[in-house]
């Protein structure tokens, strides 16, 4: 599984900070954890969020693309409209990048 994760915006004005993570580099525990998160979030059927309205500012935009065999899907979200299903996926990826 190939995961393309990018962030942009925020108070720091991040510009298209993107990384590619190959799930083959995950430990067995991480692989199990991530596959569960993808399943629970129903990632391959999630739609992207619309940008926030009503004056919101300094939020971070996130983009996640996952290639798994023949499946490929991209979801875009942000700090304001992010669903509770997607939040653990983003947290997992951010922790993985920090390591």
């Amino acid at each position: 599984m190939k995961i393309y994760f990018s962030t942009s915006g925020g108070l720091m004005g991040i510009l298209n900070n993107h990384v590619m993570i190959d799930s083959d580099t995950f430990s067995e525990k991480e692989k199990y954890q991530f596959e569960n998160l993808i399943r629970h979030s129903d990632f391959f059927n999630l739609q992207s969020d619309r940008p926030p309205t009503h004056g919101a500012a300094d939020y971070i935009n996130y983009s996640i693309s996952i290639e798994d065999g023949k499946q490929k899907h991209t979801v875009k979200t942000n700090d304001v409209t992010m669903s509770s299903q997607l939040e653990p996926v983003i947290r997992f990826l951010q922790n993985k990048i920090r390591k």
């Binding site: 108070l11 720091m12 004056g55 500012a57 300094d58 939020y59 700090d79 920090r98």
Partner: peptide, 28 residues
Amino acid sequence: GDKYMNAFWDGAKMCYGDGDPNLGIKSF
């Protein structure tokens, strides 16, 4: 958030992350 490195206004409230001192960023 978890070591969230940002602060933002969502249209009704303000949210502040703790940053990550290991990456050189303090609490917002």
